[in-house]
Design a protein around this nucleic acid. Structure first.
Lengths: 114, 114
DNA sequence: TGATTATATGAAAATATGTTCATATATTTG
DNA sequence: CAAATATATGAACATATTTTCATATAATCA
C-alpha cells in the first residue's frame, strides 16, 4: 500500500520536474525569440551605449521606418527588455534589462559556421 | 578634388561599416533564432551533460516524435550548432559549439518579467 | 485653436517557422 | 535476402512573425 503511494509520489515528482523544466525552457525560448531579430539586436546594442534614445533618433540611426520600429519597441517593452519615458513630444526608450547585452557578447564569441 | 575624394571615401566607409554591422547582426539573429525554441533548447541542455545522444534516446528523453526531432537536429547541424556521427544503425548527435551553453546560462540569469 | 511633430495602433498582406504524415533510405540481424 | 530497426526527407498544412499602410492620439508651438 505505502509502496504504491511512494511510487505514485515519485511519478508525480517526475512529472512536476518535467513541467517545470518545460516551463523554464519555454520562458527562455520566449526571451531569446524576442532578441533574435537583426533590428531588435541593433536596438539593444544602441541602447547599450546610449543610455536612452527617442523613437525618432532610433529610426534615423537604424534606418527603420517609424511604425515598424514602434512595433518592435513596444513588443520589447512588453516582454520586459525595454522601458520608456515620455519627455515632451518624444518618448525615450532604454534598456530595462542590461543583462541582455551579455547575450550579444555570448553570440559574438560563438563561431557557428553558417 | 581631393576633398571630394576624401568625402566619398568616408561615405563608402560608413556604408561599409553599416553593412558589416548589419551582416553581423543578421548572423547573430540567425544563431539566436535557431536556439530560441523549447525543444531545441532542451536538446542543447541534454547534450551539455550527455556528450552525445542518438535520435532515439533524444526522442524518448524529450518525448518528441522522431520525424519532428530529426527536422530539429538536422536544422541545428546545418547551422553549425550540432555535429553527428553514425554508429551502427544509430546516429549520435553532439554539441559542436559548446559556447551555446553560455547563452542558456545567460538567459537563466535574466530577470525579464513576462 | 489650428498646424506641426512624434509616436502608437490595428488590420491586412507577406513571409517564415513549426508540425504532421507518408514514405524513403540505410543498417543490422536472422 | 527478407524483416526489423533507426533515421531522413519532402510535401502539405497549421501557426506565428514581420512588414506595410492608413489612421489615431498626444504634445507642442505659432
Amino acid at each position: 500500500m505505502f509502496i504504491y503511494l511512494g511510487r505514485l509520489l515519485r511519478t508525480i515528482m517526475t512529472i512536476t520536474e518535467k513541467i517545470n523544466s518545460k516551463e523554464k525552457l519555454e520562458k527562455a525560448a520566449f526571451i531569446l525569440k524576442t532578441v533574435a531579430h537583426p533590428t531588435r539586436l541593433a536596438i539593444i546594442e544602441l541602447l547599450g551605449t546610449n543610455d536612452r534614445l527617442s523613437v525618432n533618433e532610433l529610426s534615423r540611426l537604424l534606418d527603420c521606418e517609424q511604425s515598424l520600429l514602434s512595433h518592435h519597441l513596444i513588443n520589447m517593452k512588453l516582454k520586459g527588455i525595454l522601458q520608456a519615458e515620455q519627455e515632451g513630444q518624444s518618448r525615450y526608450y532604454s534598456l530595462k534589462e542590461r543583462d541582455v547585452l551579455k547575450l550579444i557578447a555570448c553570440i559574438e564569441n560563438c563561431e557557428c559556421s553558417m
